[in-house]
Amino acid sequence: MREPTRTVQLLVNGRTHTVTVPVRKTLADTLREDLGLTGTHLGCEQGVCGACTVLLDGQPVRSCLLLAVQAAGHEVTTVEALGTPDRLHPLQQAFWEHHGLQCGFCTPGILISLVAFLRERPSPTREEIREALAGNLCRCTGYQNIVRAAEAAAAWMREPGR
């Protein structure tokens, strides 16, 4: 069968991109290969590991389980939008300070999941943080420090004036 393609406009991190992609191409592959946004990682490509988590209209979703053509008309946010090396997002700063990553492969998905989680639950219990992380696998098994970093970030983000 001939490879069907489609030209779509994708709104990613506030910028509109026009791309022509095979209809079967996932959003994750399109972000990485067509837009050069390689912060979104691909682990299992079957919706289990959570490394590819991005925000779709502000809600965390698996970008390996979404076709790029389906993202047209929606707002996509990737880890690249969180902070800059000079000005890290509070979550990124907390992961740095609490050694919340080892190899770092799962980190982009975890950061994105936590951004959405802390917005809905600014004062989570440790148990709730653990549950929120259940959809993101860290095979270095550095969960203790990830939970600590999430707690620290939550406290920091709750401070008045932030």
């Binding site: 069968m1 069907p4 095979p22 209809v23 079967r24 191409k25 996932t26 592959d29 490509e45 390996c64």
Partner: peptide
């Protein structure tokens, strides 16, 4: 690409 080739309709 992971998925096989398919046609896509979005009615």
């Amino acid at each position: 690409m992971k998925p096989p080739v398919f046609e896509y309709c979005d009615p």
